[in-house]
């Protein structure tokens, strides 16, 4: 007995598969044609927390703003500084352009460059805030910078996707149709607080670019080095950052606090030394040495981010310090 026999010809198989494949090819052609003639919206692939934050700040940097205090920096700047509180304390409108991802100083510079293209220079102050732990190394992730580049160039982020995704136009759908308009659910604690990408975007806009870290630090769970140092590469990066700021812009530099259990008891002095060194490289006009170096662990959401209450208090102190 034969195992199987065929009552089908190759032509039948091709005839069965051809129509759906042709339909997919047609849709792909329409998608690419739409990009070519410019009918699709601008690509904003805000599909997860990191990209939503980065793209929100990139979009915010292109908008006309009354802000006189512009905060940039690492994720601790994003999470610890509520510009509404700072504005109340200083009487100067403020905007937070901090990002969650490991965007290097060149990336921060690009955000500011866009901001000052959209807004005339009128004596604003750029406040660069970092967690001292971030200075041990130079951030090396390339993807945040390429997302920024693609956004500003109004390009589809096709450079990171597979050939099939590119040819069939899936990236066009994700970046131009789903990303900006579609609420994508967020996982974990961010999902529980903000729900979806679109709601996260709205929350950031309502909070002047600030984001509250929704996580909770378990007591006694903090692990990490208590040694703080500054990598030599920050010197070149710092000087370049300063040189690219428009004339007439003041630069302030400061550190965000670390949990007390990640200090060896001498962080006040050591932190001030580090900050002065860094501020010197940055040629900062104001060094925010009056900010607290360490705070109780119970005020932190993660080892580098303050919780909601902590962020409010820190923002208040930051406002007072900036007013000096």
């Amino acid at each position: 007995m034969r195992s199987h026999d065929y009552q089908i010809r190759w032509a039948d198989a091709v005839r069965a598969a051809a129509p759906p494949l042709a339909a997919v090819a047609l849709v792909a052609a329409i998608l690419h044609l739409g990009v070519w003639i410019g009918v699709w919206p601008r690509p904003i692939p805000a599909l997860d927390v990191d990209r939503t934050v980065l793209l929100h700040q990139a979009a915010a940097s292109e908008v006309r703003s009354e802000a006189e205090l512009i905060f940039v920096g690492d994720s601790s700047c994003l999470m610890d500084v509520d510009p509404r509180v700072v504005a109340r304390a200083t009487g100067r409108p403020a905007l937070n352009l901090g990002t969650l991802s490991h965007l290097d100083l060149e990336g921060q510079q690009r955000l500011l460059g866009r901001f000052f293209q959209a807004n005339p220079v009128r004596g604003q102050t750029v406040v660069l805030l970092m967690n001292p732990a971030s200075l041990r190394l130079w951030p090396e992730a390339a993807w945040p910078s390429s997302i920024l580049d693609d956004f500003y160039a109004r390009r589809d982020p096709i450079g990171h996707s597979s050939g099939i995704d590119r040819w069939l136009g899936f990236e066009i759908v994700r970046a131009r149709l789903l990303g900006p308009a579609w609420p994508t659910p967020l996982p974990g604690a961010f999902g529980q607080r903000y729900g979806f990408t679109r709601d996260l975007w709205r929350a950031m806009s309502a909070q002047g670019g600030h984001l509250i870290d929704p996580r909770r630090l378990e007591p006694g769970s903090i692990r990490g080095s208590t040694e703080y140092s500054i990598a030599a590469v920050w010197e070149k990066g710092g000087r370049l950052f300063r040189s690219r700021l428009p004339r007439g812009i003041r630069l302030a530099a400061g550190f965000t606090p670390v949990p007390v259990s990640l200090t060896d008891g001498d962080l006040d002095r050591r932190g001030r030394d580090l900050l002065r060194q860094w501020a010197e490289w940055l040629e900062a006009d104001q060094v925010l040495t009056g900010l607290p170096a360490a705070w109780g662990d119970d005020r932190f959401a993660t080892p580098t981010h303050l919780d909601e209450e902590g962020a409010r208090e820190f923002s208040m102190q930051l406002g007072i310090e900036l007013g000096r």
């Binding site: 195992s3 199987h4 026999d5 089908i8 069965a16 598969a17």
Partner: peptide, 19 residues
């Protein structure tokens, strides 16, 4: 234990079910 018949309708149905 039998010869199985691979037919045009069966393949089309299979593809439709998988999709």
């Amino acid at each position: 234990g039998e010869t199985r018949h691979i037919t045009r309708a069966g393949v089309a149905e299979g593809i439709r079910l998988i999709l």
